[in-house]
Structures are given as C-alpha cells and as structure tokens.
Design a protein around this nucleic acid. Structure first.
Length: 502
RNA sequence: GGCCUGUUCGUCUAGUGGUUAGGACAGUAGGUUUUCAACCUACCAACAGGAGUUCAAUUCUCCUACAGGCUACCA
C-alpha cells in the first residue's frame, strides 16, 4: 500500500434504508480522510438494489447528513463522474451482462429451485441431530448444476423463474490481507454457491458490490467489520473476471453502551439527531475518529485538518468500540468553549430563533431587535457553561422571555432566617442608583455594599437576587447578567418578586 | 451447527519479552468562586482464565471462556 498514491479511489456505499447512522458516518469519514490524505478520490455510491427495503426519501437524508459533516464526494449522485451511474438500481443491465458472461464461462449457473423449498430444506438440516458436518451442512446441494441442457431449455421455455448462482470453486484456499485484521484464510468448502442475480433480475450484495468496486476502479475498500466474512465471496467474483483485487480495511464495529450492536433502542443513532441535539460538526468528526483509531498516547482533540495529516489506516485497531455519549458531550463542550465568539454567535442565534419560532413566542421582554445585539454579550457568559448548542436555550431565553416564578422559588426563603424583602428593597435601590451607563463594575460595587452593610455574606445576597431576576438558583454570572438584562428589566423583576413573596 | 474475528482501568485507548502498565472521559475528594460551569490539584481504577516457550510474559504459541460478525433470491 502506497500512502502517496495519487490514484487512490475509495468509496462509501450506503444502503438507503434509513438515516445516516453513526457507524456509517464513521465509515464515510474514514474513507473521506484517506482520500483527503492521499489526494485520492472519494466516491459515493447508493446501494439500492433491495426494492422492498429502500426508501427514496432516505437517500436525500443521507446526502444531507454527509454534506453537513463536510464529507463531500468527488463522484456520485449530484456530481456524477465517469464511472457512473452511481446508483445500483440504474446499473442492473451491467450486472446481468456480467452474470451471463459467467454462465457462458461455466462459472455460474441458473437455479430454478423455489426459495420457499430451499428455506425448508435448510430448516430440516438444522433440526437434524446427525453428527457429520456434511449432513448438517446448510450449503446448497447444486441440484440445478446437474440439470441437463434439455432440462434447462425446457424450464426457460416454460418461463420458469430462475436465479443465477455463482459456481464456487471446490476446495480452494482464499487468502487476503486485511489492513486491520491481518491475514485471513478461508477455504471455499465453507462457501455455498451463492446467488448473484435474484429471480427478479436484481443482483445480490456480494456480487454487485464486487462488480461496482471493480468497474469504478476502487483501490481501497474501507468498511465495517461486518463485511469481513463477506470478503472471500467478493474475491471469488474478482477472480472470476480477472479483476484487480483492491486493498481491504475493515473497521471495528461500534456498539451501544451495553455492548450490543448499536440500534434504535440506544437512543440517538442518526447524525440528524445529533445535529438536532446541538452537536457541532468538528466535535462529531473528532469523536468518530477516536472510535477505532488513535494517534498517540495522549492526544484526544484533533481538528479535521490535523486528522487529515495524522490519520493512518495502519493505526486502526481491531476491538469493537462502545459508543460513549459522555465523551462525545465532553468533546462537544470543548469545541464550543474554544470556538470563536462570532462563529458561536451565529450558531446560538440560530438556535434561539428556531426555539422562539417553534414555541411561537412573540412577546420578548427585550424585543426581538435586541436579540442580535445582546446575544453577542451573552456568548462569553454561556460558552463555558454548555455542552451542546441546545442547552444554550435555558441560559439565554430568560434574557428575553418573561419569567414566571415557580412555587418552589416563590416560597424559597420562607423558612430561611434572612429578611428577603429588606434585601430586595436595598437591591432595588442600589440598582436604581447605578448610573444609566449601567457598567458591570458599578453594579458589582453597589451590590457588594449591601452585603457589607448587612454584615451578610455576599453569596446570601446573591442568591436572593438570582432567584428574583432569574427564577433559578443557578444563573450566568450575576453582575454581567444584570448588566445585559438592563436596569429597567432588572428592577421590574425585583419588584415582581417582592410582590410575590409579600 | 459451520466459518471468520476480537478480549489492557466502568468507557475510549497507549504501550513493551524486564515499565511505579501511560493518557482522556466518567467517578470521588479538595482548591478557586456570587450560583452553575470552566479551570487547577489529588485520588480511584485494567493486562479474561489456564497451559506452554523463556532467566523473565500483559507482550510470543496453544486451549478454554466470553463477545461480535457471516452463514438469505438483506446490505
């Protein structure tokens, strides 16, 4: 394998049966990274040969998620390329043509057996208590290989449906080297004559994938470990046509927190969901990169451009990785904290506007016009307090949306030994006396003075103020919060809280 | 059932024929502080089990256990 090879061609070949899954996203990303690193081409191919399962809309969802991640493709849907079409459903004639060539060469044959019957035979064999491997073998018995020319002709003439099976060479050893898993050796004795073209004329996976990868001149196949066992079959197809066999790199599986295969019951598994939850692009890519790959013994944060430089297929590991939502959260928080304010502002303002729209909230206490201006000042207060963009809503909305005190906070000071109303009156006065420029420094000075005068720790005073102006025992830093709220609104909330607890 | 693959702290991982087995997340304790975060410090915590090779094995070999994948006219 030559890393400097400019002719590298890799592909991501999703089956459009749902959203872009987190595991598929990693596969796509690793392919993309390898292409970026080597200056090769990243090809996108849609594997939609299973009519029953594929859904048209999901193709767009997948493309959308890939674009959001920034994994742009050089050839594929929407951009085309010289090895198209890039949808398997549009390549059916190609698969048929090659399959018939195999029949002519006696490397494949027509099978007229009924699928239902085969299924039953297989079941019988599984149930048998026979001891020999032969007797329990699930392999197809090659009934149709033994058919005479006349039989075949009669069947064809009568229009009997048939599938095409690949004639697997007997007792041959297939050997290949996987970048991650090393030398893999399989004997053809364990492989049955698998179907390559179904009776409905559509190809099966192991066949079409090999034909396409060969025809599209794919040089490196990077995909999930679930395909490791399929690889020998595909090599058989390559060999039957004398195609060049590409390099294989299988990626360890991604499991859920419980160690089971990642599925819907593990919560969010689609990229789309993560976008909704407020994860940022670079954080997701960074986390994905760490699932099955590592650079050294200490680095965990990698920008995408660093990944392009540092990524190596040879340092991918074999062990299946559990998806650790907590770590993703941490990485996301890290990216938010270190993001530049103007970029963060764009993202948060969008979040906020979407939120207001979704809740149909119109009467903002500070007015929508101020959202844009104020959010700029809010950013530094929230950026190290959120792990997702979505969480910012809780911290930002009280600046704009009228608060209504919860029962718990309305009675919060009832049994406490402090004179809440006295404190609030003093606060009201102190805030009123701050000059109209309303500097944080002045606000802080005046408020601290209250605790000094009352000989009360400032945290007690702060708690009272916090609940009054924020309806919560936690808030962004108090003085800055008051500054951004503005004199008028701060006083209004204090007055309101006094009224409620009086 | 057959075939293929894997197994280092709870999690992601680094690592080597001789190391106090390293880092990160999580957890715990403390510091800072107007709350919450962030930040800083410390602590907790792992080589699946058994044989063999070797002066020495977490590292090499074999077996067992466990886990995952494939075994479809799914991909």
């Amino acid at each position: 394998m030559n890393e400097k090879n400019k002719d590298v061609r890799v592909r991501f070949a999703p089956s459009p049966t749902g959203y872009l899954h987190i595991g598929s996203a990693r596969t796509a990303f690793f392919n993309w990274l390898y292409a970026a690193k080597t200056g090769g081409k990243f090809i996108l191919r849609i594997e939609d040969t299973d009519i029953a399962r594929h859904q048209e809309e999901t193709i767009n969802l997948i493309l959308k998620s890939l674009k959001w991640l920034g994994l742009n493709w050089d050839e594929g849907p929407e951009v085309s390329g010289k090895y198209g079409p890039y949808r398997q459903s549009l390549r059916v004639e190609i698969y048929k043509k090659y399959a018939h060539k195999l029949i002519e060469d006696n490397k494949a044959y027509r099978c007229f057996c009924s699928p239902d019957l085969l299924k039953e035979e297989r079941k019988d064999k599984a149930d048998k208590k026979n001891k020999t491997v032969e007797e329990k073998s699930f392999k197809y018995d090659r009934k149709c290989l033994k058919l005479s020319q006349k039989n075949i002709k009669d069947n064809l003439d009568s229009g009997k449906p048939y599938a095409i099976r690949f004639l697997v060479p007997e007792n041959k050893t297939i050997n290949y080297k996987d970048t991650v898993y090393g030398d893999i050796t399989v004997n053809t004795a364990s492989i049955e004559d698998f179907i390559i073209i179904r009776s409905n004329g559509l190809p099966t996976y192991n066949y079409s994938v090999a034909i396409d990868d060969a025809l599209m001149k794919i040089t490196h196949i990077i995909r999930g470990e679930d395909h490791l066992s399929n690889t020998p079959k595909q090599i058989l197809i390559y060999n039957a046509f004398n195609f060049n066999v590409p390099d294989f790199t299988h990626l360890p599986m991604i499991l859920g927190q419980d160690g089971q295969k990642l599925s819907k019951r593990h919560g969010s598994i689609s990229i789309e969901k993560y976008i909704e939850e407020g994860f940022v692009r670079e954080a997701i890519l960074n986390y994905l990169a760490l699932l099955g790959w590592s650079y050294d013994e200490k680095t965990t944060i990698f920008s995408t451009s660093e990944l392009i430089k540092k990524f190596e297929l040879s340092s991918i590991n074999k062990k299946p990785a559990r998806f650790d939502y907590n770590k993703l959260l941490w990485i996301n928080g890290y990216y938010i904290r270190n993001m530049d304010n103007s970029h963060l502002k764009q993202l948060l303002e969008k979040q906020m506007r979407n939120y207001l729209a979704s809740k149909n909230i119109k009467d903002l206490e500070n007015g929508v016009k101020q959202l844009d201006k104020k959010i700029e000042k809010i950013i530094p207060l929230v950026k190290e307090r959120i792990k997702t963009l979505k969480e910012s809503i809780n911290l930002i909305s009280p600046f704009f949306i009228k608060i209504s005190y919860s029962d718990e906070l309305a009675t919060y000071f009832k049994n406490k030994k402090i004179n809440t109303i006295d404190i609030l009156n003093r606060v009201y006065k102190a805030i009123s006396e701050v000059s109209d420029k309303f500097y944080v420094k002045d606000i802080e000075k005046n408020l601290r003075l209250i605790s000094e005068r009352l000989n009360l720790s400032f945290r007690k005073v702060a708690e009272v103020i916090r609940i009054a102006i924020w309806n919560s025992t936690i808030s962004p830093p108090l003085f800055e919060t008051i500054e951004i709220l503005g004199k008028e609104l701060t006083l209004k909330r204090i007055k309101e809280y006094i009224r409620i607890i009086s």
